[in-house]
Nucleic acid binder design. Structure first.
Lengths: 211, 211
DNA sequence: TAGTATGCTTAACACTGTTAAGTGAGAGGA
DNA sequence: TCCTCTCACTTAACAGTGTTAAGCATACTA
């Protein structure tokens, strides 16, 4: 019963390819709009207009607006994970790896402020959504895992006074996130030079951790 | 022309009192709803329903929804400022004052998560609104000023290696904000014990700053 | 008592995310 | 070739949003 259908498989495959292509078109259009104007300022109708389909078509490919957003974030955060993995691969001094990992995290956030907002700042907290829960674990959480490895390496090399891997990782994350999110969401505040602030944070935290 | 009216001033004053009372009623109703259910999940119509007036009445007292929000935040943040000023008054060791100021900041954020969200996380960034710009300076910025004083005291007492007051203040703020905002906006993440994380951050930053 | 200012409401506009119902082209089988 | 049925897509609508123009009634002034 499987072979019987093979003769007509071509069109089915073609249609599936076309569906996948449209899905990508939606993602591309939505990403561009979201990143340019912010999630809240872009309506489903605007996205639909951009791809020249009716608004309801989007709902054939994504459950709702939030799902569309998460699909985009997943894509983008793959980039961060890749960069952070590259950093930890050509690793010499574990502390230097950690330092550069943190910098990569913050730089990434500042380079894609709207993506960062979407995943770590706004974070549309739907109540009782277990699917979303799992999805989050595969996104920014992978970046967290990378950071965790960096911290673990430092602790294993006995570079730090504090030995609670989870606590130190979360603190480093909070440090990076604090700077990133403030710089993004309060751009009019009279900040000191951005790179100085970032370096000061990372260096101070690491100095404070050293034995 | 001023005295002529005095005979009839009573009613005018009464009406002004009543207007002020209604303004407060709106603020109280909105605060309760915003804090309980979050800014985005509360409509102007809901606020109006609660005070038993028509929705448009609110617009006679507040320019728009965001202004209503900012008025509430102003009120609430007076509490934080007061607490932080109290801490710096009975100050012995400047480092201890700074430490306790930071803790007060984070504790405040965790106690009023929706207020904190409104002022420092969501921060409805209206484009080209200069009035709002000024208003912000009188709100959370006062708390920033307090933190700044604490940092300045430490630097003047030659307790810190780094002597750039602004940079250190902004770093301390980012540290506190990072923890506060992450704990608020990702409540499902497997955090280590909250107080431990807060203390670790503050202690590590201060340790890293010491000469 | 007539007229006006004031405080509030009604009704509407232009949007939002989302869905139920309908359309129409093309594939599959006879 | 013709018929049927599937399925990608659209139309129209719902229920809600923030906000405003216009109108009404009460209370104060002259």
């Amino acid at each position: 019963m499987l072979n019987r259908a093979i003769g007509h498989m071509g069109s089915k495959q073609r249609r599936e390819r076309e569906k996948e292509a449209l899905r990508q078109d939606i993602l591309d259009a939505a990403r561009e709009l979201f990143v340019e104007e912010g999630y809240d300022n872009v309506s489903m109708r605007r996205v639909a207009e951009k791809i020249e389909y009716s608004p309801t078509t989007i709902y054939l490919y994504f459950e709702d607006k939030a799902s569309l957003l998460y699909a985009i974030c997943e894509e983008t955060f793959a980039g961060l994970t890749k960069r952070m993995e590259a950093i930890s691969r050509d690793g010499d001094d574990p502390i230097e790896v950690l330092r550069r990992g943190c910098r990569a995290y913050v730089d990434f956030g500042l380079k894609y402020p709207n993506h960062y907002k979407l995943t770590f700042i706004n974070h549309p907290q739907h109540p009782r959504d277990e699917k979303r829960h799992l999805r989050e674990e595969s996104m920014g959480m992978k970046a967290y895992g990378n950071l965790r490895s960096g911290v673990e390496a430092c602790i294993k090399a006995k570079k730090f006074r504090e030995t609670n891997v989870e606590a130190v990782t979360q603190m480093m994350w909070a440090g990076g996130h604090g700077i990133t999110s403030l710089l993004i969401s309060m751009p009019d505040f009279p900040w000191v030079k951005k790179t100085d602030l970032i370096d000061l944070m990372i260096d101070t935290l690491i100095a404070g951790l050293r034995a």
